[in-house]
Design a protein around this nucleic acid. Structure first.
Length: 435
RNA sequence: GGGCUCGUGGUGUAGAGGCCUAACAUGCCUCCCUGUCACGGAGGAGAUCGCCGGUUCGAAUCCGGUCGGGCCCGCCA
């Protein structure tokens, strides 16, 4: 029976068999220490028999080993226990020298990110690096738990589409048996259609944007959480749902991964306000202009510096890492958004530690108003690409709203990473398609 | 798409016209070492300085182009 690293202490005084990767060698001559890595962590093995250590001659870090020996309580060993008098068996020999050193901290400096992604296969074996992606897995797990508990149905919608009808972002095109297909920039139409069946739906999937953006917050292939809920009372209900979910998920992850987050130098979580506070775009422009003497009052959207400024303000003045920017000017809206009487879009941007992580709008649900808004946006309502979408409205959609939520950005800001790509295993950007 | 920057052994850096036949750290190889945990010590291999062209008696170093990286802005998740 294989014993995992975290279970070693339970086997003190007995013989145990472990399997894992050779992580580190410290050869002192008559006294040799091996560190073995498995999915739970590390085990130290003390090798005094020269014949056993000779089995590793010519083999590199990463060699897969099976080791059987006596488990000894030893306070000098990391973890308080180690294996003595081991018998080594090489399961998979590795003779190629790893290109990077995995037992040491992997550099996340911006100028080293290319090396990081080029050698991802190896650096993901670094314990510290793995923590980012264990935290990422927990974030999406808690999101699913929260939404499932609130009667949301998880759906999967196609990413191969006939053509781009949603508008907005640039899309990728590809050959599809002689026809031209596009990659979905979001599940927007499909999730709204599904409100007509399930009321509450969500999807965690990939979206593709052909925007030539070269920034620390853009990917061409991103992971989005799309939520849509019907029969809402007003925009505030949607803002509250998304805000409360985010708070719940962050608290749960900070609770479960407190040690990991600390070791990654993640910021302390601040969520003192009962609900996520809201400021209108106009208010933020005014506050920012007053505070920085940089006039932004004629901007329609927030500038990246305003996003950072209002987040900083919310953290310091209100004790919260989450803040909403609401009531966007009408020209910022799309044809499927709902507009209020004051001529603003019922749309909220959820900001987390200086970065927009979600857009949270209310949708127009009236069939005739949709037709009108599409026409005034210059769209052809008879277009084949709108038929299924519009028929969902024709056959009855309740008032609904939801969000497009950037999972990669959530992970980035939770951990405190400078670049969204660091929160992604194999990031796709304007220049990178491999590995 | 616009602007600004950076490319030197596997990895991270130093060198900024001749001292470079390119230095240091780490990794790798050989040897020594009985409590290491960034182990320590001795020795060794490993880079024509991204690529192409130019200036110069002489270029890693200056200039032009090109390719690749990074950051900011626009746009957005």
């Amino acid at each position: 029976m294989r014993v995992l690293s975290s279970e070693l202490k339970e086997h003190i005084g007995k013989e145990a068999m472990i399997q894992g990767w050779l992580h580190k060698k410290r050869l002192l001559g008559g006294l040799n220490f091996l560190t073995i890595r498995d999915r739970r962590g590390l085990v130290q093995v003390l090798v005094e028999n020269k014949d056993e250590i000779e089995k590793l001659r010519g083999l590199q870090i990463g060699t897969v080993l099976e080791i059987t020996g006596n488990v000894i309580e030893e306070e000098r060993a990391p973890g308080g226990a180690e294996i003595h008098e081991p018998a080594l068996s090489v399961m998979v020999p590795v003779t190629d020298e790893p290109a990077i050193e995995i037992d040491k901290p992997i550099s996340h400096k911006s100028e080293h990110l290319d090396t990081l992604f080029e050698h991802r296969v190896l650096n993901i074996r670094n314990i510290q690096e793995q923590k980012i992606f264990r935290i990422r897995a927990s974030l999406t797990r808690y999101i699913r738990e929260y939404l499932n508990q609130n009667e949301f149905i998880e759906i999967d919608t196609p990413k191969l589409l006939a053509e781009a009808t949603e508008g907005g972002a640039e899309v990728f095109t590809l050959d599809y048996f002689g026809k031209t297909a596009t990659l979905a920039q979001s599940p927007q139409f499909y999730k709204q259609i599904m409100v007509g069946a399930f009321e509450r739906v969500y999807e965690i999937g990939h979206s593709y944007r052909a925007e030539p953006s070269a920034t620390t917050r853009h990917l061409t292939e991103l992971t989005m959480l799309d939520i849509e809920m019907g029969f809402v009372i007003d925009h505030d209900e949607v803002l509250d749902m998304v805000g409360n979910m985010t708070k719940h998920v962050l608290k749960a992850v900070y609770d479960e991964h407190s040690a990991d987050l600390k070791s990654l130098n993640a910021p302390e979580l601040k969520l003192e306000e009962a609900v996520v506070p809201r400021f209108t775009i106009a208010e933020i422009h005014e506050m920012y202009t007053k505070a920085t003497k940089t006039d932004t009052t004629s901007e329609k959207d927030l500038t990246p510096d305003e996003e950072r400024w209002i987040s900083d303000y919310a953290r310091k003045q209100l004790g919260t890492d989450l803040v909403y920017a609401v009531k966007f000017p009408a020209e910022a809206g799309k044809f499927y958004h709902k507009f209020d009487d004051e001529g603003t879009v019922l749309w909220g941007d959820l900001l987390f530690r200086g970065l927009e992580i979600a857009t949270v709008p209310l949708r127009e649900n009236n069939y005739q108003k949709m037709i009108d808004q599409m026409k005034s946006a210059g769209l052809d309502t008879e277009h084949e690409g709108f038929r299924a979408y519009l028929s969902a409205f024709k056959y009855g959609l309740p008032i609904h709203g939801g969000c497009g939520f950037g999972i990669d950005r959530l992970v980035q800001k939770t951990v405190g990473l400078a670049n969204v790509k660091e929160a992604t295993l194999f990031p796709r950007d304007i220049n990178r398609l491999a590995p």
